[in-house]
Design a protein around this nucleic acid. Structure first.
Length: 314
DNA sequence: CAAATAATAT
DNA sequence: AATATTATTT
């Protein structure tokens, strides 16, 4: 009977995800990019032209090509490499979460382009770049500044939905944040977005018939629910004005069933945390910690996946 | 004082 | 332009 490679041992092991990067070699242990995989002699013997020294830029470019081809896009025009291969060891990945299986977009991107230093060949002495700096992310882990949030269409949709249900009157950052129920989303995040959203609405009203400016990518794509009428005012209803959570439709913490695609033939997809596919949590069902309900989803076909373990609701 | 909003800053 | 951060106001 056919015997294939067993590559999945899914056990109820929650910690596994966290340990994911534990066993990985540190940047320091990795073979330097400048090092040739095939000795020149051997190479010439087989008429293999020695690989040119690869730099980080080359790797990035190659990666983009790969991704692009997978996505069916033109591999070119990728002059702007946002890909940063900073060590996962120190990089604090985060997760702008999005839920809901609708819409088509998967514009998830974590583009924090930092100074992409050029590790050029010939000067591999640049190893000095490997400063044995802070290796203890354990302690500094929390106080680290979180990467800026990217309002993906999914997130925005959620945002709009909630705002709509609340009515612009009572749609305030804190409430919105709570109803959106997105891990890691802060009040500031929402406040900022709300501010912009309001400007958008205002600007829209001024224009007679609809005409979402082409620059309003996100907003334009999301049909502004006419429910933007007031509802928080007095006289309607059931509550005088405070609306802690009367909405019958708070986004429930969803758990995504990410289809375990046969990622067999795939080539190691660069640094994407593949194994963490929403493990079949051995939910003991009683730990209703506000956290832990990692709601991630859909790394499919997308560039990278981010995950943050703890959210800070407050 | 906390939260919302407006105004800036990156 | 998109978010973050800070300053003011409620």
């Amino acid at each position: 009977m056919g015997e294939e490679v067993q590559m999945c041992e899914f056990e109820g092991d929650e910690e596994r995800v966290l340990e994911w990067e534990a066993g990985l070699p540190s940047v320091n242990d990795l073979m330097p990019l400048s090092q040739l995989l095939i000795p020149p002699e051997l190479a010439s013997a087989f008429i293999i032209k020695p690989e040119p020294c690869r730099s980080m830029v080359d790797v990035n470019r190659a990666s983009q090509n790969t991704l692009s081809s997978l996505l069916g896009q033109s591999p070119e025009l990728s002059l702007s490499n946002n890909f940063n291969f900073k060590s996962f060891t120190e990089e604090r990945t985060r997760d702008p979460l999005d839920v809901e299986g609708d819409e088509t977009d998967l514009t998830r991107e974590g583009s924090d382009s930092r100074k992409l230093r050029r590790i050029d060949s010939g000067a591999e002495e640049a190893d000095s770049a490997l400063r044995p700096e802070n290796c203890n992310d354990d302690l500094s882990a929390r106080a680290l500044k979180r990467p800026r949030l990217v309002w993906t269409p999914q997130l925005h949709k959620r945002f709009v939905d909630v705002v709509a249900h609340l009515g612009i009157k009572s749609a305030v950052p804190k409430t919105i944040m709570q109803l959106m129920n997105v891990e890691g989303l802060t009040r500031e995040n929402v406040a900022s977005h709300l501010q912009k959203y309001r400007l958008y609405l205002k600007r829209m009203q001024g224009l007679s018939s609809e005409g979402p400016s082409p620059s309003d990518h996100l907003f334009a794509s999301t049909p502004v629910p006419p429910s933007l009428n007031e509802s928080g005012g007095s006289g309607h209803g059931c509550n005088g004005g405070h609306v802690p959570m009367p909405i019958p439709m708070p986004y429930a913490p969803q758990m995504m069933p990410m289809p375990v695609l046969g990622m067999s033939h795939g080539h190691g997809h660069m640094g994407m945390p593949v194994g963490n596919t929403a493990a079949p949590h051995p939910y003991h069902g009683f730990e209703s910690h506000p956290y832990n309900m990692v709601q991630q989803r859909d790394w499919s076909g997308t560039k990278f996946g981010y995950q943050r373990v703890v959210g800070n609701d407050k």
